[in-house]
């Protein structure tokens, strides 16, 4: 499976990555190579192998339902570009 330039443009847009015109061919070829590698691995016989969602053979540990975090808004907002009345301000988004 190979990617088209348009596929890469679309993926880049979805990921909000700026890929310039000059880079596009190289990125398309690199990503296609990764897919070729996956296709190669796909050819391996995996009948009877349970699919994994995670490389570790472990299960998720659970946490008791307790409030352990205190309000640290001031610290967090000290590094935010813009805040007002405790809110983070961002460029206007309206659907």
């Amino acid at each position: 499976m190979s990617l088209e330039r348009s596929d890469v443009e679309k993926i880049a847009h979805l990921a909000r990555l700026a890929v310039s015109e000059d880079e596009l061919d190289a990125v398309t070829s690199d990503l296609s190579n990764i897919l070729h590698l996956v296709a190669q691995m796909d050819a391996a016989d995996t009948a009877g192998v349970e699919p994994m969602a995670h490389p570790l053979h472990m299960a998720q540990r659970l946490r008791p339902d307790e409030v352990s975090e205190t309000d640290q808004r001031e610290k967090f907002q000290a590094i935010a570009p813009l805040t007002e009345d405790g809110l983070y301000l961002v460029p206007r988004v309206i659907e």
Binding site: E84, Y88, L89, V90, P91, R92, V93, I94
Partner: peptide, 11 residues
């Protein structure tokens, strides 16, 4: 989306 000088506030 109320008026925050034309910006959006996030809680």
């Amino acid at each position: 989306h109320e008026d925050f000088h034309g910006m959006t506030g996030v809680d």
